[in-house]
Design a protein around this nucleic acid. Sequence first.
RNA 1: GGCCCGGUCGCCUAGCGGUCUAGGGCGCUUCCCUUUCAAGGAAGAGGUCAUGGGUUCGAAUCCCAUCCGGGCUACCA
Length: 478
Amino acid sequence: MGLRVRFAPSPTGALHIGSVRTTLYNYFLARQSQGTLILRIEDTDQERLVAGAIDSIYEGLHWFGVGWDEGPREGGPRAPYVQSERLPLYQKGAQELVDTGAAYFCFCSKDRLEQMRAAQRARGEITRYDRHCRDIPSADAAERAKVEPDHVIRLKVPEDGTIAIDDLVYGHIEWPLSTIEDQILLKSDGFPTYQLAVVIDDHLMGIDPVIRGEDWLPSTPKHLLVYRAFGWDVPPHAHVPNVLGPDGKKLSKRHGATEVDEFRREGYLPEAMVNFLALIGWSPGTEEEVFSIDDLIQRFRIDQVQKAGGKWDRDRLNYFNGLWIRRLSDDDLCARLEPFLPPGWDRKLVRAVVPLIKERMTTLVEASELIAFLFTDTVEQDPALLIPKKREALDVITALSRVTVLLRFVQPFAAAAIEQAISAVATELGWTLRDLTIAIRAAVTGRKVGPPLYGSIELLGKDRTLARLEAAQERLEP
RNA sequence: GGCCCGGUCGCCUAGCGGUCUAGGGCGCUUCCCUUUCAAGGAAGAGGUCAUGGGUUCGAAUCCCAUCCGGGCUACCA
């Protein structure tokens, strides 16, 4: 096979999670076919450029484990891979279309276009270019173009007929040409519009198939017309459905986090994100749903992609995140936790407690909160937590003091022996183990819930445990 | 408004004319396990397959209409 596919983001902001999904699909196909993945930067809109956007794309994609073969920083046989560095190609192409009569110079000012649209709206008409410059004799137009630098080049869309594509996911789609406007191909600043640049680049870079978001579907007929005007073959196209917000609209900032980096900082695993994202709009047709990136490379099929948009579901993402955290080795989990831990914490202790909290986390940020009690000298002890329901403060003092006494003699200070001592106290006092551990947990960790008690106590160490138990007794003193 | 796309439990989805009294997962509820919380196990609630017409012996699956939703409609991508 050896497919040549690409992803072509605009450097107009941080890497968006929706475009990651599309990129992933391209990546799966490239790898499974032992083909080529190309990164192309579409920076033809000079006004919307955002500094650092390309860095964000590189960092984000690398975090996901997505690598590519040709791109601005890695070079390649079809370089350059940044559209602003390919201007002569587009200008030459546009001129060629003018020469063959498939495109024409347009000298309408932005003001005129605005007025035109306003008038059309006032009359209740469709707002569309009125083809004012379409019929200027080509010799005259060429002359004017020399002296009026502000001109653009527009596509001369045939008056009637239809144009169609057989999309790999949406199937056969047809458009009446009468509904398509004379799209600008080359802007007055000499930059191409997307409509011209994609076609030229996809053709020159040998892209096959073109995989992109569903929102490009409506402009596909324009692209087809450009291919036709150049006399080029149209590569197979696959449009993939949009990722939607909970309200059914295209996922955007107002729905919450959408940038890759935000999820990284919130403690999400790339494995979980990939798994979750791949399953929005794609299913292998079986009941399996836990997939590594390598599984996906193997299993993904473009013809299994759905047509309907899929909503972003935080709960489901969280589920996958917890699942992938549990699948990590303890050492690996420790390494991933590193950026989320205070620098002063003893890493050996962290490593020791990781097995206790592994299945209690849905995101990486939760770890430090779960184990903070191990890294402080004292802990805040809330009497309300210290005293189990239907128990008296005095009874709790007695119980804790018994625990303190027995624990003092536990040697070595290990979970199993600690458990024995504590349950001995429960039996002796006629307490339920449940009530006793509630009090002890509150005394030792300051919290109501947490990692397994006996293991926690072992890691805390005898001295600190006894100190906290004694402090709790004083705290309850009338 | 115009063009195009879509519509299966709250959410992600399986389904491609009969095996569907519509399956799985998330979330939710209950139970088990249990030192808490999780994790794990079990069970359950939840869908007139948007609606209405066809076609057919038979339709979630094919056709048409309607409704609803979305995308696009820039010298943005």
